[in-house]
């Protein structure tokens, strides 16, 4: 049955959208990330206008994030002061991002900007993940333990001012790195519809050196506030949040997460990261292909400013 999306003003088959939600939920369940970075390109491929795809994805990420955050809240695996600082940076970034988004739309470079940001980000993240998972797999086969992080290592980050003590993370660092980091991710969130968890998590662990057990909960807290406010700002500024599309995606996601978690328990960490890396690179290549190959028609039409 075809369903009419009131904001996107087009008909879609509800099963396709539900399936996309489920596929992304599957990834959430498997890898513990929001999956927004895969959802937005999938929606683009299915013909949803880019602006609607990105804005609506943020609401789906908010839903997925909230469901994960509930668990972390109960287990107290989050650092609230750190989360608060990151949320402040993230919200500022979102405001900037929604503003940039509007300018890009007016310039007619929306589609291109979304695609090229995705190619860069997915290419980088996918490539790093692929290299890391291959190395781990090779080392595991050779019987060597994989190298963990060295504790107590100091770098340039410790020379920055405005230091603050974070009890839960057992850190005494400047608030500038988390602020800057979350600001940048906030911008990405608004422009690309991603939660940013997949960028924040590694950076919080390797750069800011937060304990790995506290990072996901803290990041989810930040991502929740950023995506929730990005959804509201897109609705107010651009009128591009489609509630029917959002509900379908979220409903599909709930089903997918269940399946993903079940499969996830049977796979090893580096194998999962290998799969995710392939998927990420695949999407990056597909998006890049669309940018490089000579288009069928050089002209494109946009009605109004959608």
């Amino acid at each position: 049955m075809e369903l009419y999306l009131p904001i996107a003003q087009m008909s879609v088959h509800w099963l396709i959208i539900l399936g996309m939600g489920a596929a992304v939920g599957l990834i959430t369940g498997l890898f513990g990330i929001g999956g927004g970075f895969i959802l937005a390109p999938l929606l683009l491929f299915s013909g949803i206008p880019p602006a609607v795809a990105v804005s609506t994805t943020t609401s789906q990420v908010a839903a997925a994030t909230f469901s994960g955050l509930v668990t972390h809240w109960k287990n107290k695996t989050l650092d609230l002061p750190m989360a608060a600082i990151m949320t402040a940076g993230g919200l500022a970034g979102t405001v900037a991002g929604v503003y940039i988004f509007r300018i890009l739309r007016e310039l007619g470079q929306m589609e291109f900007s979304i695609s090229i940001s995705y190619v860069a980000l997915l290419g980088a993240v996918g490539g790093l993940m692929l290299a890391e998972s291959l190395r781990t797999m090779r080392e595991a086969r050779a019987g060597r333990p994989s190298g963990g992080r060295k504790p107590g290592q100091h770098n340039w980050i410790h020379g920055l001012p405005l230091k603050m003590r974070f009890r839960r993370s057992r850190l005494y660092i400047s608030v500038i790195p988390p602020l800057v980091l979350s600001f940048i991710v906030g911008i990405l969130s608004a422009i690309m519809g991603v939660g940013g968890g997949f960028i924040l998590v590694p950076l919080m662990i390797y750069l800011i050196k937060m304990p790995a057990s506290i990072v996901p909960g803290t990041t989810l807290f930040q991502v929740l506030f950023v995506t929730a406010s990005a959804t509201i700002m897109h609705a107010v500024d651009n009128y591009t949040v489609d509630v029917v599309l959002a509900l379908l995606l979220i409903a599909g996601g709930v089903i997918g997460v269940q399946i993903g978690v079940r499969i996830g328990t049977r796979l090893r960490g580096e194998q999962m990261r290998f799969l995710l890396a392939l998927l990420t690179l695949g999407i990056a290549i597909r998006l890049l292909y669309d940018l490089v190959v000579t288009p069928e028609d050089l002209f494109s039409l946009r009605v109004g400013d959608m």
């Binding site: 609401s59 789906q60 908010a62 839903a63 997925a64 994030t65 909230f66 469901s67 509930v70 929730a228 959804t231 509201i232 609705a235 949040v241 509630v243 959002a246 509900l247 979220i250 409903a251 996601g253 709930v254 997460v257």
Partner: peptide, 12 residues
């Protein structure tokens, strides 16, 4: 929309 999303997330 956000509240609805959170509600669904919570239920899940």
């Amino acid at each position: 929309v956000v509240l609805l999303a959170l509600l669904l997330g919570w239920i899940s």
